Each structure stands twice: as C-alpha cells, then as structure tokens.
Amino acid sequence: MMKHSYLLVLLICLFSGDLFAQQKPDSLYQVKGFVIVAPKPDGVDEFVKFINKELAPRKVNTLILRVDYNYQFKSHPELRDSAALSESDARKILEACRKNNINIIPEINLLGHQSRAAKTGMLLKAYPEFNETPWIKMPATAADYKWPNADNLYCLSYCPLYPGVHKIIFDLVDEIMDVFEAKAFHAGMDEVFYLGEDKCPRCAGRDKAVLFANEVQTIRDHLAEKNRELWIWGDRLLDGRAAGIGEWAGSYNDTYRAIDMIPKDVVICDWQYEQDNQTPVYFAIKGFRVVTCSRSHPQVAVNQVEDLYRSRAISGRTLKSRFYGIAEMIDSPASEFINANYSRATSSTSGDNAQWNTFKAMFDKMNQLEQRDAK
C-alpha cells in the first residue's frame, strides 16, 4: 500500500511539473524592453550595430519600434513619409533582433498623436476628413506652437467613428506586422486630448470612456483574427486628477473609466517618467499584464526596477504573473539617442536626467538584481 501511494505521489509530481528536480524559477523580468523611434534609412546600419553591441549584451528581449509612417507601405503609398524604411531595411533590423532573441513589436500611433507641434501626420494629411477636430487651425511653424493654447491643441486625433478609417489603418497594421513577422502590435493611444468632441457630428454627446474602450476593442479584435496581441500605453486609463499626476500621465477627459471596459488580454505599457507613482500595481489588480516604462530620470528608473522586483517577490501567483516586465522608452530619434549614448553629440536633453543615463542605470540595476537572485 505504501509503495503504491509513493508511486501515485511521484506521478502527480511528474505530471504537474512540481517535481523539485525539474522546477524552474519564475523569470524575474518576462519583458526586458527597449522602446524607440525607428531609424531613417540612412541610420539602419548604425541601429543594427546598436542592437548587437548594446541591447544584446543587456539581454533585452523586446524591442518596441515606433514606425508610424516611416515605412514604404505598399498598401497605401500615399501614407509614406518622404524618407521611409524599405522592406530590405526592415529585414536588416529583423535579422539582428532574431539573432539576439529579441522580439520586435512595431508601433503605429493610433487614435491620438496624429500631429506633433505644427506638423500634421500622414494619415490626416492624406485623409483630412478623418480629423476629429477639423475646425482647429494648426500653427504655421513649430515655433508658433505654444502650450497651453486656446484650442487645447496638443496632438490631433482621428475620429474613431468615421466610416472607412479602420480599413486604412488596419491595412498598415497588417503590412508592418507581416514585414517584421511580429506577434504583437503597439497601438500607442497615449495622450489623447481630442475625443468625443461636441462639434463632431459622429461623436458628440457620446461617453468618451466608451469611445476609447470601443477603439481598443476594435483594434484588439482585428489583431486577434491572426492570433496577434495588442499593447497600448496606459495613461488614458488613469484618473489624472484623482491621482494628482496631471493630464499627460493621466486622463482629464474621463477616458480612465475605460479600464473596466477593455479586454484583459491587452498588455499595458505604464509610463511614469518623473515620479515613481507605483501605478503598475493598479493595472495588475485590474487584471492586466503591465510593463513599467522609464525614460529620463535614472533614480526613478532604478526605483521602478526595485518596485517590479518587490512586487513579483511578495505577490501571490495570480498577481505575480501580471508584473510583466520593464522597458526604457526613448522618444528622441534613434540616431540622436545613439550618438548621445556614445558621446558623439549633445542632445536637447542634458545632464543627469538624460535618456541614455537612464538607459544605463535601469539595465545595470536589472542585471544586478538578476545576478543577486541567481546566487
């Protein structure tokens, strides 16, 4: 009887994966990420070197590459930037990442960020009818752009209810996913100031949280058709007033209630750059996998790495898996960041609170904790 009981226990252990000899510790960082604007064609070779010499040694496993309209789209040539990556350029980046076990997640800013300062993005240039706020007059030059302003202009948005808008943007999404052989797509969706405007004949009077949630659902469902995953920035899902984090890091136009309306399989990239607001805990409790994102404050980044380590260490199994990882976010052009990283040039961001200093501090801390954990 004792012999049969021992065999039964042994079989249960084998099939449950809990046999001590076969146990594997949970990964400390499921996502070790790097987020950057895709290089222009003349910077591809330098970017590939950066992947090999800087990202690979730091064991980065996820590269979120903001492409936007910097690609020679075949489905919609009218949406190409004037100098855009070719398929061959994209393949060079893909091969470098594949060689170093780095997953590429391409990003095209959807919904918001359809303009920057005085520059309107290619989607609204080619299809001005998609503009949520066509009555807003853009500044003549970047020097004329001021914040705050009477129109509350930060970045333009497309109207998510305009007929045909999704057909066009999904053509771009599918094409860029195919060329990078990607399993996940980053839709941006951060800092959306224009949504459900009273003058919009389609959106007026609608609940902004519902509009935002429906757009997330629409993009997510399209990706799911090919078993692809949606990643977005998390700021529109935070109450900027209640949390005291302002209208960029959080929402002032009520979209934050969408957090209870969107699918839980969406991955949230939670950027809190200037303060360690510990908002990943909120997203995890709400049921989402969350990737903490740092940028330009080294000490904040170090604190966030320690938060992630602590959260995974003290949380139960369900919550632990939702603290998905951490990433360094670079919002300057790739060539500018790389030059600054190698001290070949100066940037508009200088001093200790520079992106390249944060990049180094964050990954140094990550590696330090990993080494300590391995002992």
Rank of each mutant, 00 (worst) to 15 (best):
A213I: 01
N214F: 00
V216K: 02
Q217I: 13
I219L: 09
R220D: 10
D221V: 00
D221Y: 02
H222G: 02
A224I: 01
E225D: 07
K226Q: 15
K226H: 13
N227W: 06
R228K: 14
E229Y: 09
L230D: 01
L230S: 00
I232C: 05
I232M: 10
I232R: 02
G234H: 03
G234P: 01
L237K: 02
L238P: 03
L238W: 09
L238D: 04
G240D: 06
R241K: 13
A242S: 11
A243G: 03
G244Y: 07
G244W: 07
I245Y: 08
I245G: 03
G246P: 08
E247V: 08
E247K: 12
N253D: 14
D254Y: 11
A258Q: 03
I259V: 13
I259Q: 00
I262Q: 01
P263K: 04
K264T: 11
K264G: 11
V266H: 01
V267N: 04
V267E: 00
V267L: 13
V267C: 05
V267G: 00
C269V: 12
W271Q: 03
Q272K: 09
E274L: 14
D276Y: 13
D276T: 10
N277Q: 12
Q278M: 13
Q278P: 05
P280W: 10
P280Y: 08
P280M: 09
V281I: 10
F283E: 01
F283I: 02
A284Q: 03
I285S: 07
I285R: 13
K286C: 11
G287Y: 11
G287N: 08
G287A: 11
R289D: 09
R289N: 12
R289L: 07
V290D: 00
V291A: 08
T292C: 05
C293M: 09
S294E: 07
S294I: 05
R295F: 11
R295V: 07
S296I: 06
H297Q: 10
P298V: 08
Q299C: 07
V302I: 15
N303T: 10
N303K: 15
N303G: 08
L308M: 14
R310G: 05
A313W: 10
A313P: 06
I314P: 00
S315I: 04
S315D: 09
G316R: 05
R317T: 12
L319T: 05
K320T: 06
S321Q: 09
R322K: 14
F323S: 02
Y324D: 04
G325I: 04
I326F: 12
I326K: 04
E328G: 10
D331T: 15
D331K: 06
S332A: 15
E336F: 09
I338E: 11
N339I: 05
A340D: 06
R344I: 06
R344A: 09
R344H: 11
T346S: 15
T349W: 15
G351I: 04
